[in-house]
Simulated scan of single mutants.
Amino acid sequence: MKKLPRFLITQNEAAKVSSPFIVHTQRPAFVARALSFPDEAAIEAYLNEHQPTYVTLVRDLPMLIEVVQIFQNPADITPGLLSRLGDWYYYTQIKPGDEPTTLQPIEPSRPS
């Protein structure tokens, strides 16, 4: 049997406004979502309002990745792991050389 990739990406097609979700398949298992913002001020406003515990910025882009569900020990989610997640997302989904202006800003959805 093939080994699962470390990160898998998915999208909730049924949602009105959806952002990509990333599943970390190894220990600690968790789900994160990638959020795009129009500028740095919008990121700061989001961070101040929601105060996420586990979050990483994606390079110098107006994007962040926020862990939204943890299935194992939260203490195992390290800054290094979050940094690797941000790098993986950047290199597999954004692709170096793409202009940040080509990204579609996504309004973060509020939890129901």
Results as ranks from 00 to 15, higher is better:
M1T: 07
K2G: 01
R6A: 02
L8K: 15
L8D: 12
I9F: 06
T10E: 15
Q11A: 01
A14R: 14
V17P: 00
V17F: 04
S18W: 10
S19P: 01
I22N: 07
V23W: 06
T25G: 07
R27T: 12
P28R: 11
P28M: 13
A29R: 15
A29C: 07
F30P: 00
V31E: 15
R33W: 00
L35D: 11
S36Q: 03
S36I: 07
F37A: 11
E40C: 02
A41H: 14
A42W: 05
E44Q: 14
A45T: 13
Y46D: 01
L47I: 15
E49I: 08
E49F: 04
V55A: 02
V55Q: 10
V55N: 01
T56A: 09
V58I: 14
R59N: 06
L64T: 01
L64E: 02
I65S: 01
I65Y: 06
E66F: 02
V68S: 10
Q69N: 11
F71G: 04
F71V: 02
Q72R: 06
Q72A: 12
P74T: 12
P74Q: 05
D76R: 13
I77N: 08
G80F: 09
L82R: 04
L85P: 00
L85K: 06
G86E: 03
G86M: 02
D87G: 00
W88D: 11
Y91A: 13
Q93G: 03
P96W: 04
E99Y: 13
T102K: 13
T102F: 05
L103W: 06
L103E: 09
P105D: 14
P105F: 04
E107N: 06
P108S: 07
P108G: 09
S109Q: 12
